[in-house]
């Protein structure tokens, strides 16, 4: 970022390639379609460009980036244009309007044991569903922690919350996830769930 402040555009390209994937997956969990997610991610980077002169090395760049993205997502949700992103099969996106089963099949690795592959697909569907069903506060904390690999302190700074609040939200999110996955284990037997990595 310091290099880009001096006018090095290639440095900004490095920043984009380092953060765009995780940022895309974060934003994609908050908007119903990939087109909106694309606009929001582009707007995040443009705000970074416009505010590059004000950036100080004391702030971690990923934290700053997530703060901008979260604010944009929050504003987008307040405008009422955000539909609840229920599940992969209901979420329009770049991958097209595929039915849930096709998407899961595409996501799950086809190789190996067919039974194991089917279980992985089911787990992914349940995780995706559980994350999408989380409240926004719990979801953003869960995604920041698991997707963006941020510490609880950084999450607290990005969300303008206290660290115990962040941990409490994370605890609730994990409890929901655990319940969802437990149901799956109850349906397929505990051995199937235990065998997952």
């Amino acid at each position: 970022m310091a290099r880009y402040q001096k006018g090095d555009v290639s440095a900004f390209a490095e920043l984009v390639s380092r953060h765009e994937k995780r940022l895309w997956n974060f934003v994609r969990r908050f908007v119903p379609d990939s087109a909106t997610a694309e606009d929001l991610v582009q707007e995040v980077f443009l705000r970074v460009v416009r505010s590059a002169a004000d950036w100080r090395p004391s702030a971690k760049f990923s934290t700053w980036l997530l703060t901008i993205a979260r604010n944009l997502c929050t504003d987008n949700a307040r405008r009422g244009s955000v539909r609840r992103a229920d599940s992969l099969e209901q979420t329009p996106g770049v991958a097209g309007d595929e039915p849930r089963g096709h998407r899961i099949e595409r996501l799950a690795a086809p190789g190996g044991n067919a039974e194991r592959a089917a279980l992985d697909r089911e787990i992914a569907v349940r995780v995706d569903a559980a994350v999408t069903d989380l409240p926004v506060e719990q979801r953003e904390v869960f995604l920041m922690r698991e997707v963006m690999d941020m510490s609880f302190a950084e999450i607290a700074a990005a969300t303008s919350s206290s660290e115990p609040t962040v941990k409490s939200r994370m605890r609730y999110a994990l409890e929901r996830l655990r319940v969802a996955l437990h149901e799956l284990a109850d349906e397929n037997g505990p051995a199937a769930v235990e065998s997952t990595p």
């Binding site: 895309w24 997956n25 690795a109 992914a124």
Partner: peptide, 13 residues
Amino acid sequence: ARAALTGPLLQEP
């Protein structure tokens, strides 16, 4: 959840 989010659920922009 981590395996799903960083594996099958991870999307390319």
